[in-house]
Design a binder for these strands. Sequence first.
DNA 1: ACGATTTGACCACG
DNA 2: CGTGGTCAAATCGT
Length: 305
Amino acid sequence: MESVVIDGNGERVVTELSQIMELVRQLEGYLGGSQTQEEECRRLASQISSLTERSITLITCLDSGGRKRSAASPLSDASDAPFKPTKKRRSANKVKNQVRVSAGGGGGDIPADDGHSWRKYGQKEILGAKYPRAYYRCTHRHSQGCAATKQVQRADEDPTLFDIVYLDDHTCVQNGAAAVAPAAEHNPNAHNLLQSMSSNLTVKTEGAQGWVAAAAAPFCLPSTPASACLQAAAAAELSPFSAPSTTSENWGVSPATSDSNQHAAASSFPPFEVVAGGDLQFEFGEVVSALADVPDDFDISSFFA
DNA sequence: ACGATTTGACCACG
DNA sequence: CGTGGTCAAATCGT
């Protein structure tokens, strides 16, 4: 289906992610070391986080910058049908974020939780796909009018992988946002986080054949308690899918606390173009933010010209 | 009893 | 007209 398509900036994202992987490698080398090494760990984690966030911004900008439904704003276009609550699809202008995640933990059955509560409302066989696609919407759809939905589909080639397409942002409020961040604060957890990262951080390009790994994690560790980390990270509201649309000046700024999107609807367009062909898709899932709780004291400028 | 999931049907969109 | 997104009744789980 439609995927996020990036041109020149795609290269840049790949570059950044390569740097991220390098940092992770370094970080791993420091694990279990002395105090000073722990400090180095934190520093590297900080860098990883920032780089990742930037990459996410690149992607989400592109993705959500296109057009967002002005949920209740009459001030814009008349061309857009005054959507009545029919049961039909209004796929036209929805914010899409496609992500590929590996099945959570040993169960292998379901992709790791992303910190939001979803309710399944349908499942369908998709032509040409080996596995059916499941449809979920936010549990708080009625209580809070949250329009977020997602589609989960098992990858044809690798049943342990799931392609998840998120449609629309969450407008609901999930509490406990601050409660979990500490997971990234202490070194003993770093290993888990790294494991999460190594098993989930993947940048892929989509060619004629579908998903092709362009840069995979250089190290793989068995049996990952990933879901806990994932949940922690996502609950901390650092999910890549809630990043506000932004201009380039905002890079590196952490959107730590807000999930009230929707009012950003009128903001600007992404600083890059969407073209056809040479797709580059992003999919590091929730994990990328697992190392997110960082001081903002690090200088990202040393990484980019 | 209530909320979540399953499943067949409906129907918009391409 | 086929495909895929959603609805809603039936079913299941707690």
